Amino acid sequence: MLSNITVFDFETTGLDPVNERVIEMAAIRVVNGEITTGFHTLVKPGRELTPKITEITGITDEMLTDAMDESLAFRIFRNIMGDSLLVAHNAAFDLQFLHHTLQRLAGKSFSNPFIDTLTISRERHTYPHKLTDMCAKYGIVLDGAHRALNDVIGCWELLKAMHAAEPVDVFLNRLGYLSKYGPPDWVPEHATIFGTQNKYETREVV
């Protein structure tokens, strides 16, 4: 199941995958449980960052001055991922950016299978489900969250821990979304989507 995967993460200028741009990407290719390839780069967005994005990511306009061109960055990423199983935390977000960027740059998308560790988190655990929270639940040290490379390593460790606890095979190509917000605007054709809601720990009323 996890013998040929690419764990990846994008940091972006905003939430809209059509109009916003990727400013940082990271990916690791895992074959038979071993990391065989890693890729990490800042990406020129062609626009200035908002103070909020800099606050969240720690990335500044100055850091992006000598960043990699978007077209080259995505060509490299496309070569790394090949036909592997894609893995991300909150995959609906990253898969949308991947799709719309490939469409804009190359006029095509992707057909890779995928697993979303956030969907697994919501099914198996109580709120909160951020990558930092989930790593903490499994005793995984995650340094520097919201930087792409750190998030990728954390997501890989989280996937391994989840799979060891109970096989994640049933989550292949499944995307859960919070019902109160509605489904994503775009999902892969092979995705099965379903509404869900956060589970909360019950508290005793004193």
Rank of each mutant, 00 (worst) to 15 (best):
R147L: 11
S71P: 01
I115W: 11
F110Q: 00
D116H: 14
A191G: 12
G107A: 01
S3H: 12
V187F: 04
P128K: 08
L49H: 04
N90W: 11
P45D: 12
N150V: 01
I28Q: 07
T37A: 15
V205A: 14
A106F: 14
A191D: 03
Q103L: 15
I5C: 14
G176H: 05
A27P: 01
K130F: 12
V205D: 05
H129D: 08
E11H: 05
H99V: 07
R124Y: 10
R174N: 08
G14I: 00
P128V: 06
I5E: 07
N79W: 13
M25F: 09
P167G: 09
I5G: 00
K160Q: 14
I59Y: 03
K130D: 09
M1W: 11
W156S: 03
N112G: 00
T50C: 12
T37N: 11
E34A: 02
T192I: 08
L95H: 06
R174I: 05
Y138T: 00
D151V: 13
A161W: 04
T41M: 07
M25E: 07
R203P: 01
I115P: 03
H40N: 15
K44P: 00
R78V: 09
A27D: 01
D69C: 08
L2I: 11
Y177L: 00
A148L: 05
T13N: 07
N150P: 02
L85M: 12
K160F: 00
A88T: 06
G195E: 14
L72H: 08
T196D: 04
A26C: 04
R78D: 15
L175S: 04
N198F: 04
E20R: 02
Y127P: 03
I115Q: 08
L95I: 08
M68C: 07
Y181W: 13
L42S: 04
L2S: 06
E201M: 15
I115K: 11
T202L: 10
E201S: 12
G38L: 02
S111T: 09
V87K: 10
E48L: 15
S84E: 00
Y177H: 02
F93W: 09
L142K: 07
L95T: 03
M68I: 12
V168T: 10
A106N: 12
G144D: 13
D151F: 01
Y200F: 15
T196M: 14
Y177N: 08
E48Y: 10
S84F: 02
L98R: 06
L105E: 14
E11V: 12
K108H: 11
C155P: 00
P183G: 06
N90K: 07
I53K: 02
A161E: 14
G33E: 10
E24K: 10
L15C: 06
G82I: 08
G176I: 03
E20I: 03
E24I: 10
R21L: 10
G14D: 05
P188V: 04
L131F: 02
F93Y: 13
C155A: 13
Y138L: 11
V168E: 05
L158A: 00
F97P: 01
W156V: 01
V187L: 13
I28M: 02
V205E: 12
D69G: 14
G33I: 01
K199Y: 09
L15F: 12
A106D: 14
E204A: 14
A161F: 12
G144E: 13
